[in-house]
Structure formats: structure tokens, C-alpha cells
Amino acid sequence: MSKVLEIKDLRYKKNHKVILDKVNLSLDNGKIVGLLGANGAGKTTLMRLIVGLNSKTSGQITVAGVESKEAIKSCVSTTYSLKSAFKDVFANSWLERTRIKDIVKFYQTVYPDFSLDKYQEMADFLALDSRQNLKNLSTGETEKLTIALTLARQVQLYLLDEPLNGIDIMTRKKIIKSIIQWKNEEATMIISSHYVKEIAALLDDVIIIKDQTIYEVDSVEEIQNKYHLGVEAYYEQVYGGGSADE
């Protein structure tokens, strides 16, 4: 099985504080991987470093055999805050009129790998109305849109950062269903979430971040065999039985 992601001795420092250190990671193609860790453990930072939104202090990141930031961006599709990133100079005024269809058009324009058909299928499934204005979307609707846009790109690595945060149980179930339904067979997906129980059934492998580094990378099966625990129970055990978020 070929490697989709390889990280060697990654270090990231900000405001005189080490956020991540000695991070080494190697992931195979075609997996769904859970990225778990307490608040502030560095999950989002790791994802941002992989895709080049943050500048690493030292180390090496390779995605699908490529190392340059530009090439990596062609191989990775990631979630990010649409409401914040799509703000323009008219933000918070009546002139701010970014509709879902404008965002879809932007994705079509800038990402040659964006599949409009795939997006449309997901948008129908998730009941997204393309005429809606971005600033009027609820948290759940924004999250659904983010997932649909991210998964509509045909890439080798997907990074979903807290896709279930702040949304109701029904929407969470719908998002999880769409992840299973529309993930490419060959692609790898890294999902960070505090809703460990809800995503556990999806996962092939688990990465746990603790003390600024990768504490463990294991398959769900191996965790069960080695520790006789489910993913959630093991994660809680790693964090001392309750200091983790969920």
C-alpha cells in the first residue's frame, strides 16, 4: 500500500511556545483516520501545517510523494471556516451578498479537481439551497456546505477538522453518512473530532496527539486486540480517564 502522507521530525513553534514537536507520521492510502486529542493539543495546527496554511518551524511533510506547498495543495482538500474566509471588504454591510452558488462558482473556478456533479449530489442529500446567503446559514448548514465542498474535490487526502462541532444529532448523522457515501475508495481521510463515539465506527486508524507530539498511531482493530478497549475508552484512558474533552 503506498503512502499518502509522510511527516518527519515536524516542529512548530508560535509565540515562544512549542505547539508540536518531533511529529513523525506515515499514513497509507484508502483509510479513514481519526485525529484525537484534547483542546489545544495541536490537531488543527497539524492539519494546517499539512496543507500549508501554517509555516512549519522545521521538519518535512510529503503528501502523495510531493513536498512543495503548491503541489501539496493540489492533493489535499481541507475544511476551513467559510464564514471567516469568504468575508470581503463589504463584510457586515448590506452589500455583503455571498450566496452558496457564488462559493460553488469560486470552487469551480479555482479547483480543476472540483466535481460539480458530486457536489450537487451531496447538496441534494444534505438539503442545501444554493440561493441562500452565507451569512444567514446556521452552524449546521455551514458545516454541511463545508463538507460538501471539501468532498466534491477529487484528491488523495481529505482533512476534516471538527466537522461535527456545534451541530445537532440529526445533522451529525447526516454528515457522517455523507462522509461514508462520498469518500473516494483510494483517498485517505483524516477526521479530527471530539465526538469520538460517533465517528469511531467510521475509523480504520487512530492518531492520538498528546504532549505536543503523536502519542500513538494504531489501527482500531489493534487497539481492540492490544488493550481490549474501544476507541473512545482507550482515548479516555490515554488522557487519564477524563481529562479529554469528551
Partner: peptide, 9 residues
């Protein structure tokens, strides 16, 4: 903006 910084360019 992440919107622009994520474009493969």
C-alpha cells in the same frame, strides 16, 4: 484568507 491560501498556486 484560507480561501485564497489553499488554492494550488
Amino acid at each position: 484568507s484560507s480561501k485564497y491560501r489553499l488554492i494550488p498556486i
